[in-house]
């Protein structure tokens, strides 16, 4: 059985990726199951999806904690989520990056497939929806299903022009994907803040995937003391970020007043800057700024 975990942001189509792959496998007469991580969905928030493929019926319904393959749809996720958590030794990683792919290799990884999926998606689909692009990269890395089956799955799911464009995106990704194999050369660590903690006992009680309190540690009524957002950086939902042009700013403070997350902070010189630990990228400040000093930029690799 092959277990694949997809990481994306709400709206990028991680769930669709998993389902398309399963669909292609089922069409080929294999057995497959695809499902999302269940929970509240927010556009832009980190989400994951799972796909299991086998020659025998797939019976498991549990989330995939030690995948054979991890597919990362959004480059900014490396800073927000421990995407390679539990990845099997000699596992595979498929990423969307415009950077030099070599720096994403790490020890224990067998092969890495890298593609500038955001660029391909923007150019062909005119939107940064990278799911079909990454599927092209995935089957370039390992022929889990035939390209034709995947194309047929895409055509079943989408219709008309959208289907054609997605097929184009998939085929182009298949061509442009770079595959690196671990040949024992010196490799760099995966750029992920979580990796700093790899091997350490705990990442901090409130880190989102580490809510490992014992029942005896819970306060009566599960009361949460103030200040929990100090540990819980909610800015990882963001898919866009505000950029302030100082020259245009008149220091009126409207961005500060309107920001629903108190993420605009006034500096001693009177200008405002954005606290990226908490900014959700909602764009309200850009909307409210009377001089147009703020514009929103796509969050890619920081």
């Amino acid at each position: 059985m092959l277990e694949i975990r997809f990481h994306g942001r709400g709206g990028q189509g991680a769930v669709t990726s998993a389902e398309l792959l399963a669909q292609a496998a089922i069409e080929e007469g294999k057995y497959a199951r695809a499902f999302p991580s269940f929970g509240p969905e927010r556009r832009g928030a980190p989400v994951s999806a799972f796909c299991r493929i086998d020659d025998k019926p797939v019976t498991l319904r549990t989330s995939i904690d030690s995948p054979d393959v991890v597919v990362v749809l959004d480059p900014s996720l490396f800073n927000a989520v421990d995407v390679t958590r539990g990845l099997k030794k000699d596992g595979f990683l498929v990423i969307n990056t415009k950077k030099e792919s070599k720096q994403f290799m790490f020890e224990g990884l067998k092969q890495l497939a890298a593609v500038n999926a955001t660029q391909i998606a923007q150019e062909i689909l005119n939107r940064p929806i990278t799911n079909t692009v990454l599927l092209g990269a995935l089957i370039r890395l390992m022929p889990i299903v035939k390209v034709d089956s995947l194309i047929s799955a895409v055509q079943t799911r989408f219709s008309g022009k959208i289907a054609n464009l997605n097929v184009q995106a998939l085929e182009r990704a298949y061509q442009e994907t770079q595959v690196l194999s671990n040949n024992g050369e010196q490799t760099l660590e995966l750029v992920s803040p979580k990796n700093e903690f790899a091997g350490k006992e705990k990442v901090g009680k409130a880190a989102k995937e580490d809510l490992d309190y014992l029942w005896t540690e819970l306060s009566p009524g599960c009361v949460v003391q103030p200040g929990s957002s100090r540990d819980n950086h909610t800015g990882d939902w963001r898919s866009c970020l505000p950029v302030i042009q100082k020259e245009r700013c008149i220091q009126c403070g409207l961005c500060w007043a309107f920001c629903p997350d108190a993420a605009q902070v006034q500096k001693p010189d009177g200008y405002f800057s954005v606290d990226l630990d908490y900014c959700k990228g909602c764009g309200i400040c850009a909307m409210e700024c009377p001089t147009g000093a703020i514009h929103m930029e796509k969050e890619l690799e920081l």
Partner: peptide
């Protein structure tokens, strides 16, 4: 009272619990 809602001493009552915490909350 062990905890009270008071504007001068903010705290959160009734936060939600993900699958990572609900079982422990029920056990407690």
């Amino acid at each position: 009272p062990k905890y009270t809602l008071h504007p001068d001493h903010p705290l959160t009552m009734g936060a939600y619990a993900t699958p990572a915490l609900y079982t422990e909350a029920k056990k407690a």
